[in-house]
């Protein structure tokens, strides 16, 4: 499952990031790595961009970036 499919209020753990140059590198520098917990805060109209919470801070990404992040829903 990818991060953009997460529904608002759901929590998940990152299992992999699709490596593609500077964008992925920036996400990783900001702490989005294998094992990091994320939760979906809200989505804009049409589901793009999305706002997620990572390690206690709010980050807004476009759907295209969120789609690079594979996740596993936490229960």
């Amino acid at each position: 499952m990818k991060l953009d499919q997460l529904k608002p209020g759901q929590k998940a753990t990152i299992i992999d990031i699709d490596e593609d140059g500077p964008v992925a590198q920036r996400l990783m520098a900001m702490g989005l790595l294998e094992g990091t917990k994320v939760s979906m805060t809200r989505k804009a109209l049409g589901g793009d961009p999305v706002e997620v919470e990572v390690m206690g801070y709010a980050l807004s990404l476009r759907k295209d970036e969120a789609r690079r992040i594979s996740i596993e829903i936490s229960t």
Partner: peptide, 9 residues
């Protein structure tokens, strides 16, 4: 192009 931005408190 892609975009990401931190939403600070």
């Amino acid at each position: 192009p892609g975009f990401m931005i931190e939403l600070p408190p």
